[in-house]
Amino acid sequence: MVEPVLALLSAIIVVLGIVMTVAKNPITSAFSLVALMLTLAGVYAAIGAHFVAALQAIVYAGAVMVLFVFSIMLLNMNEEKSEINLESWRTYAGFWSVVGLFLGLAYAFFQWAGESHGPRPGPWSISAIKEHGGNVVALSGVLFSEYYIQFEVISLLLLVAMAGALVLAKRKVD
């Protein structure tokens, strides 16, 4: 059975997704995306992924979306009509192929839910994580033992991205 709080958060996410896609003003899209990400952080917290919930709220809703809102302000766009062209056949082709993709994914997930001979569950049940000292402790133990090379590589990637963004956004002086 689904907990009521998860059902409520899912319903909010569904509505916010539609608002983000069809909104005329980019600011409306950006703020509904912020709200969607915060709601998603609530979903993560509700199923026990506390570290991911905090990361989602801080990095996505905090940092990335501030960057988006800031660039919208910088580029100064004001929309008077909707961008979605309802007369072109391409719009309908795109829409119905995405609907088809959703139906295929939903079918696959229902198959997965009905399957009883899937992969065996691992050692980290919710009670095991609680005994180990909480979600963050369990995650950090695995992160700095099994995944430490990926961790170093990702720090290098962040450095390169920072340098790249600086070089790209710099105004050319000659």
Partner: peptide, 9 residues
Amino acid sequence: ELQQVSGQL
């Protein structure tokens, strides 16, 4: 579902 932490990492 699979009681792992790798997915969260």
